[in-house]
Nucleic acid binder design. Structure first.
Lengths: 224, 224
DNA sequence: ATTATCTATAGATCTATAGATAATGC
DNA sequence: ATTATCTATAGATCTATAGATAATGC
């Protein structure tokens, strides 16, 4: 049984000491989960390693066995967050995935996915902001991802330029993506800057955002 | 001379020990200035009272003479920030100040003033956000100010409803203010979320924002 | 035999205070 | 005489390590 590769098992037969590795992996996940939750809620610098230990049900010694120091632990949490974002971005801007959709569909999917990422990883922004202040590499990786996302969405809009009634499609598309980003930033930040739509459910916000896009680009009214 | 009230002197003659008070006041200002700068750059919780002492050229003992504990010092910095915002808001929404202006003028002034406040007090948002996380009173005072500002600007727009071509002026005005807030939030946050306009100078951003307002409300084109 | 985990604690900060010294104004 | 300032330091955290104990797989 130890020599049989199981379908749902990521670990290959060539791995040795699989039990230890599984155990180790589980602990690391528990530590990272607890750390992410605490970092998001109370800040990175403000969270003590002892807090992470307590929240993950492990001891300090165990944490320092898996992570050489607090900096490494923080980096691991951040990497996991940015890996998640990277995956989201890749699917968001993949043209083949959206072939059947018109501009409204693309906008709807973009805004909806952004809201869902925030739901899956609450405090994502807070952690990235705090770490970015002291770590240039994190800041740059995040910026690259954001730019790739913006450029990708703009490209998806311009692939559908027959729908666009605006006389300068390039300019209008860029402006539009900026506006969507601004609306999303404001909504995800609404804990701090209240908006009229703040109380509205996600669904209404998405509809609102899509109509804003339609207005800017001067799409044919109604649609799908 | 001690009994003559001086025109430019806030202290009245009934005050005693004026020299000491002036000295004391100067020290408190120096401490608050240093604290605000450090809090904005490196975070509130992350800044040690010793750091504030060093940056203000005073000793720890002196700081604890003027402020009973770190919490009080933080509260004093936050109060100063919010007082400043309160003054800005009051002039921003004062109808008598904008009588000569049309909607474009009001929008231009609003956006310009917001940018200028951020320049005068860089890191304003960062400090308020961090403190708001642990202090409900600060969060609520900030929220009240933001709402008063939004409502006030909306009212200024609606006082000029003859300019508005949109069939539903109320709705359009609210939406418009939300959109401006979103654009401002995004720009002031552009260190984190890059935008197309990020590199553009303030002047261009203001023009852009005003044109966005004009478009939404369907103002007569051109204008002042 | 190796890897994972725990307990206990050294060493580095950081907050806050006590007590001495200096400046100000009666 | 009162208020402002400083130096020195106690006590509370927090990071990181050392060394003992438990689990895993040869």
């Amino acid at each position: 049984m130890t020599h049989m590769a199981q379908a749902s098992d990521r670990s290959a037969t060539r791995w040795e000491r699989r039990g230890q590795q599984v155990r180790s992996h589980r602990t690391q996940d528990a530590i990272l989960d607890a750390a992410e939750e605490l970092f998001a809620r109370r800040g990175v610098e403000t969270t003590a390693v002892t807090d992470v230990a307590a929240a993950s049900g492990r001891s300090i010694g165990s944490i320092y066995h898996h992570f050489t120091n607090k900096e490494t632990l923080v980096a691991a949490v951040v990497d996991r967050l940015l890996d998640d974002l990277e995956t989201s971005v890749a699917t968001a801007i993949d043209p083949s995935r959206w072939q059947a959709q018109d501009i409204r569909g693309v906008a709807r999917a973009y805004v909806g996915n952004s809201l869902r990422l925030d739901e899956r990883r609450p405090g994502f922004k807070r952690i990235i902001v705090e770490v970015s202040l002291v770590d240039a590499a994190t800041r740059e990786r995040y910026h690259r991802l954001r730019r790739r996302l913006d450029d990708g969405i703009t490209a998806l809009l311009l692939e559908r330029r027959t729908e666009i009634g605006h006389p300068e499609p390039e300019l209008a598309a860029r402006f539009c993506v900026d506006q969507l980003t601004a609306m999303l930033t404001a909504r995800l930040d609404s804990e701090m800057t209240p908006t009229q739509l703040e109380a509205a459910p996600d669904e209404a916000f998405v509809r609102h955002a899509v109509e804003s896009v339609a207005g800017h680009l001067r799409l044919a009214s109604a649609g799908s």
